[in-house]
């Protein structure tokens, strides 16, 4: 059982976009869309010579408490128990867009041709991991700001880094901790960009209104049937049964 994660030393990121380009080619990400990103702070020029910008690479955080998975009614998006990757089963997806809204990191987009969500899966579906290669963004990164590995292996680079250095995670606003598996070596910035977890209206209505209504309706119906059945078994109407079996009616 593996638990893939990424530990990012954003202090060495030079915003060269190699990770974004590499990902795009490897995963055939369509024009205008990206599976990963580099965010940055806004420089404060009042600091004069000490003005700095911090660049911060990111992507799907493969959360342990994935709200995208929670928002998917069909299990088309799911967390892989074997490795912790949050996958999209495109063949099971009907493209309802619930998961895209439910991600506080904006890590998903609706693929314009396939019309299903698309996201980073640590290059799993491209076959890189199977071929023993690192995710495309990690492999290509000039300054090795992105480090990838298995958290359940204490000797992995990511485990070692997390032991050696204090790390932080970028968390969603609004109190829901999605338990992301993307760790930033402390002092990363910006850290306040994640949004709130937003379960779309269609999902909320289905979960809180429609589902109870259906359960009640079916339940009542089943209750009625049960009563009728019980009546038929335990106190059948004599005349009725006679009436049924005897050929000529009285009326």
């Amino acid at each position: 059982m593996k638990k893939y994660a990424m530990v990012i030393d954003s202090s060495v990121c030079i915003d060269c976009k190699a990770c974004m380009a590499s990902c795009k080619v490897q995963n055939n990400v369509p024009r205008g869309y990206w599976r990963n990103w580099i965010k940055h702070t806004i420089p404060d020029f009042s600091k004069g010579p000490l003005t700095r910008t911090h660049f911060q690479p990111g992507g799907c955080m493969q959360c342990d408490n994935p709200t995208c998975v929670q928002a998917c009614p069909s299990g088309a998006t799911y967390k892989d128990p074997q490795n912790g990757i949050v996958h999209v089963n495109e063949a099971l997806c009907i493209g309802c867009g619930n998961c895209i809204k439910a991600c506080p990191y904006d890590a998903r987009f609706r693929h314009p041709d396939k019309r299903v969500p698309d996201k980073c899966d640590f290059c799993f579906s491209s076959g890189r991991l199977e071929r023993g290669l690192l995710p495309a963004c990690v492999d290509t990164c000039p300054t090795k700001a992105r480090v990838f590995g298995d958290l359940s292996d204490p000797d992995s680079d990511v485990s070692r880094l997390l032991r050696d250095k204090p790390a932080v995670r970028v968390l969603a606003k609004g109190g829901i901790d999605t338990k992301p598996n993307m760790y930033y070596v402390a002092a990363t910035a910006p850290t306040d960009w994640a949004g709130e977890v937003e379960f779309p209206g269609a999902f909320t209505v289905m979960a809180t209104l429609v589902n109870p209504v259906v359960k009640v309706a079916v339940g009542l119906s089943a209750l009625g049937v049960a009563v009728m059945w019980a009546k038929q078994i335990f106190s059948p109407d004599k005349e009725e049964s006679e009436h049924e079996s005897s050929a000529p009616g009285k009326d």
Binding site: P73, C93, I94, G95, C96, G97, N98, I100, R110, P112, K114, R115, V116, P200, A202, F203, V205, M206, V210, N211, V213, V214, K215, A217, V218, S221
Partner: peptide, 26 residues
């Protein structure tokens, strides 16, 4: 939805209605 529709909204709400209707008919 995944063949020709660019907006995910209708699919999301269709599922709700689909499910509700099936429930009532059932």
């Amino acid at each position: 939805s995944t063949i020709s529709m660019d907006n995910p909204g209708p699919a999301a709400w269709s599922r709700v209605i689909h499910y509700l209707t099936v429930g009532v008919v059932f």
